[in-house]
Amino acid sequence: MAALSTSSALDMSVRIGSALLKNPIIAASGCYNRGAEYSRVTDISQYGAITLKSVTRQPRLGNEMPRTMSTPAGMLNAIGLQGPGIEYFLKADAPALAHVPTAVIASVAGFTVEEFAYVAERMDGIPNVVALELDVSCPNVDREGECFAAQPSSIAAVVAAVKKRARLPVIAKLMPNVSDLKPIAKAAQEAGADALSLINAVRGIAIDVKNALPLLANVTGGLTGPAIRPIAVHAVWEVASAVTIPLIGMGGIETGRDALEFLFAGAGAVAIGTANFRRPDVHMEVLAGIVAEMRGRGCERVTSLTGLANPRFAGSRSVEAAVARPKTHLEGAHE
């Protein structure tokens, strides 16, 4: 893309724990599978990282149909963590990740603390995988449908267990369906999380009025798309005042302007989910939009945009610049 070639003097890299991404645009989990499908229709190397669909310990068949539903400015989904389980994933899917032309974040889901720790540990050593994201927003069968991300003590238990067993940096994914995100974010940070991603899909239900029945087979779904963006920006804004670790903001990002909202609220990186379905080139447009904003402001490092609008932003904008970075294959054309 022409706009990107002009960014050669800019430093677009961001750091998530020990992982260095060549730019702050990430494909959100669940929307990119293992990366191969989108390689057919766009240049996925322009992503700073792609996040894989969550992997659980056991294979999961997922929910019955219908699993998705269009809603005003958004989409409800209830896929139900369909997936191969970690053993089959390692055998069938993991080797191909070596060919993904950008960094990979592996998403881990589980129903017990031990499942999270086990799957996270097994993710070690997969080519290209630079970080783990913990999908702690899935139903916790041991706690009667509650999610790990609903309670400070629960999220802390998962993060601490994973940190003990996994060597990769750990990102805990927060959900918006709580009364106050700040204590949950703080608990994750104190338990050792290297970064937080927020927000997961917002819970929703759509009803077929003609038949007086829920439209999704799972009844409840996760709402994504532009409909949730202000909720997500608010969540980033709140959490940015509570923790110092990097935040990955997501929820309805479709343009550079949308991404800047998240960065200005306090996110160090952003993720794009549902918008990929409609515009597979969306990440390049978002990146070009951020680059244009940096040019307009005369700023050289994308990290300096973080938290600009948020007076209570507690993180650091200069940490990336202060750390002497090893040159890795992750550093792309922007270096």
């Binding site: 229709v41 294979p59 997922g62 896929i79 089959y88």
Partner: peptide, 26 residues
């Protein structure tokens, strides 16, 4: 997604169908 990434449009098929996931049974 129309591309096979989101798993939103599945149809139940018999085990062993070459078009299925082939995942082991939990």
């Amino acid at each position: 997604c129309s591309l096979g990434t989101c798993w939103g449009c599945v149809v139940p098929v018999r085990r062993g169908c070459p078009q299925g996931t082939g995942y082991p049974k939990a």
